[in-house]
C-alpha cells in the first residue's frame, strides 16, 4: 500500500484514504465550444500515459477532501513530490 503525502494535511497517509483522479494539468477550457471535434476528443480522451514521470491528481477523500497534484514514477510507483492544486507543474 502506497504512502501518499497530502500537501494540505502535510502528512504521509495510507493509500486507502485517497482516490486517484487521472492525469493532472488538463484544464477545462473557458469556452469548450471553441474547440474542434478533434481537439475536444483529444482533451476528453487522449492521455499521455508515460513510462516514468507522470503528473496526476489525487484526492484526499477520507481526509481533508482536497484535490492535489503529484509526480509519480509509473515504473516504480515512487512519488517524487506532491503539491497543491493551482501550483505550477513540477
Amino acid at each position: 500500500m502506497l504512502l501518499i503525502h497530502c500537501p494540505y494535511c502535510e502528512e504521509a497517509r495510507p493509500e486507502v484514504e485517497f482516490v486517484y483522479g487521472g492525469e493532472a494539468h488538463i484544464a477545462r477550457p473557458i469556452d469548450p465550444s471553441a474547440f474542434s471535434d478533434a481537439e475536444w476528443e483529444k482533451l476528453l480522451y487522449i492521455r499521455s500515459n508515460p513510462r516514468g514521470r507522470h503528473h496526476e491528481r489525487w484526492r484526499h477523500t477520507h481526509g481533508c477532501g482536497r484535490f492535489f497534484n503529484a509526480v509519480r514514477d509509473t515504473v516504480t510507483d515512487v512519488f517524487e513530490t506532491t503539491y497543491k492544486a493551482g501550483e505550477a507543474r513540477k
Binding site: 482516490v19 477545462r28 491528481r57 484526492r59 477532501g65 482536497r66 484535490f67 492544486a85
Partner: peptide
Amino acid sequence: LGMMEDYLQTEWS
C-alpha cells in the same frame, strides 16, 4: 459530491 468538489476545487475555485 466528489465530482462537484472536483469542479469546485480545481476548475472554478
